[in-house]
Design a protein around this nucleic acid. Sequence first.
DNA 1: TAGATTGTTAATCGATTAACAATC
DNA 2: TAGATTGTTAATCGATTAACAATC
Lengths: 215, 215
Amino acid sequence: MGQAHKISDAIVKRLPAYYRYLGDLQTQGITRISSKELGARMGLTASQIRQDINCFGGFGQQGYGYHVAELKACIGDVLGLVRTYNMVVLGAGHMGQAVAQYDGFRHHGFCTTALFDPDTNLIGTKIAGLPVYSPQELSHYCRENTVNIGIIATPMHAAQTSCDALIACGVYAIWNFAPVDLVTPDSVAVSNVHLSDTLLVLAYHMQKNLHAELE
Amino acid sequence: MGQAHKISDAIVKRLPAYYRYLGDLQTQGITRISSKELGARMGLTASQIRQDINCFGGFGQQGYGYHVAELKACIGDVLGLVRTYNMVVLGAGHMGQAVAQYDGFRHHGFCTTALFDPDTNLIGTKIAGLPVYSPQELSHYCRENTVNIGIIATPMHAAQTSCDALIACGVYAIWNFAPVDLVTPDSVAVSNVHLSDTLLVLAYHMQKNLHAELE
DNA sequence: TAGATTGTTAATCGATTAACAATC
DNA sequence: TAGATTGTTAATCGATTAACAATC
């Protein structure tokens, strides 16, 4: 089943939210949902939801709506959640440790297997049951183990180097927590979590609200 | 100085990146930048950069470009970085602790002052030098101290309750790390960090790249 | 059958890009 | 002055919304 339409970036960014809401519905024992009702819950228009869903052809039924389980499975497919992914964390500081222990994605098939950090106090220890290795062992580790995703949680200055090292090891996906925009070939997928950026946007909106109140 | 044009959401989301890149330029000792050069660095078109900047009227000079320091200060103004913000963290788990200790925004004027967690093993201790209190003490704490931003790093099921508690205490900005879309009045600014969402988007792109290679 | 709700086409809206006169 | 680069208007592109015939 090929994709009916191209899935635009705007739609891709909404897919995780769809997946999440459909999961919630399942938990609540709801098996059937209309675009109208789903839109109300998610804060989207019914029209947009139908447009989005039609991009990958998961189809509903006129007069009925969508089967929750079916639609969720279909979106999972599109997102690539049919398989599992092994991940390693570069940088075992606060953020690296937190991400390594974060369990919000384990049940989606993402599994962290090791951390890498140059700190000799950490090398050889375990964090959340996962071994910490020297960055020099990365390429050896990648040869011996399957590594699908590299998580960059190093200080800013080490981020690009870490990224290059991962790519040299054949890792084609980077989840970046450092506040830098990494330079990578097109064949490498990068997803950035620029924490301070989201905080600055929050400051902007906060300030805007305050001004609005004074008017 | 009023805003020339309305600043759209799309532009607001780019402002932190502008701010970041301009800071980098300053560090490199570069005092002057053209929209063309800045665009090349940031991966935007020169045209877009000029459009963006003209929204808030920070103006350049024909034939010269923009003063880096001036433009950066102007964007800082727009973002509301002229003042400081006090923050408290709700939920002292891995993520809460990591965020409390994250220093990527301290120099922008954001200061974390306390954590709140129901875990009696944590209450009364210090994390990164910051006190951990019981959530029941939140309203008292907010009366005695200025709290501008509430950070939600609780488990999913406690997120909405925590959010409500913060709002009841007069906190008008929420930085949310729980994988839920919070329900709030319009006067409250919310910024979400949905970690797993960004990971799922990464999985999608990774998978898409793999397919592209096979063709 | 009548009501509900889809898939899909057309209309609108907004964001990005192109072009160029103004001017440092 | 000539070259560079802006501010701004117009053109294009893409995303969202509206509308409605098809149909469960």
